[in-house]
Design a protein around this nucleic acid. Sequence first.
DNA 1: CTCAAATATGTTATATTATAACAAACGTTA
DNA 2: TAACGTTTGTTATAATATAACATATTTGAG
Lengths: 130, 130
Amino acid sequence: MVQAQTLSRNQQIVLDIIEKAKGPLKAYSILFNVQKKGINAPQQIYRALDKLIEMGKIHKIESKNAFVACRSSDCEISKATAFSICESCEMVDEISDAKLSKYLSSFNHRKGMKFKRFNLEFFGLCKKCK
Amino acid sequence: MVQAQTLSRNQQIVLDIIEKAKGPLKAYSILFNVQKKGINAPQQIYRALDKLIEMGKIHKIESKNAFVACRSSDCEISKATAFSICESCEMVDEISDAKLSKYLSSFNHRKGMKFKRFNLEFFGLCKKCK
DNA sequence: CTCAAATATGTTATATTATAACAAACGTTA
DNA sequence: TAACGTTTGTTATAATATAACATATTTGAG
């Protein structure tokens, strides 16, 4: 079972870095950023990332193997995630839209699947880059 | 620019294997399967995969780093892809639904993005596994 | 409280996924 | 036929992720 609130030391360190970042961070770039804090091994990063994902504090952008902080409140521990990804500047924007969530959840049910979650990634050019 | 029809030797070999497979295949498992045909290096696989994706013949399942043959006709060279993924048996099913495509394409436009494509992955248990 | 269970940490090693860089062959088509 | 784009073959290495094991810390039931 997942804790509701308290983060362990390493989890907090990793989360802080991801939250401060402007864009998605890769596991090894997180690692390089925390070596001064006594974290030396990929395992320590990946374990923290796994827990943070379980808790819904961060999301993985699958197409980039990178991680962003959760900016939404209605993703319900990551059951329904959606992102806009700019192919030029690499910006990632979490899409928080209850209608979209509802539409996709029910869509999947109709297809005979016992639905657990979905992840949607949009690609294109953001306002600045287009 | 991408060719319309003709596949090169390696591209055809890789596509054949992916089309015959029951489920998604990983790059290195493809590699191991074609070493008898004289393909020895990951590069040769990845290059074929890249081209096949460009041509819309196969899709990458991002959450699994695996590849499936395209079973749809209306994904328009992979501009709009959607999959059901069973977390138990690993089955992947391509979802081909014009309404869904339309809904998601126009959704994204409203968010101020110059839309190029999307990829949607549903997770849960398939009929057999639930 | 207290000890057992669960969770988190540290560490070394290794597996898996993917790309860089370069040389040679092939196939158009102008 | 020469120039161009594409494909191939090859060696090396980069980037991403997990296995396995020992130890420490936290938490909660009795």
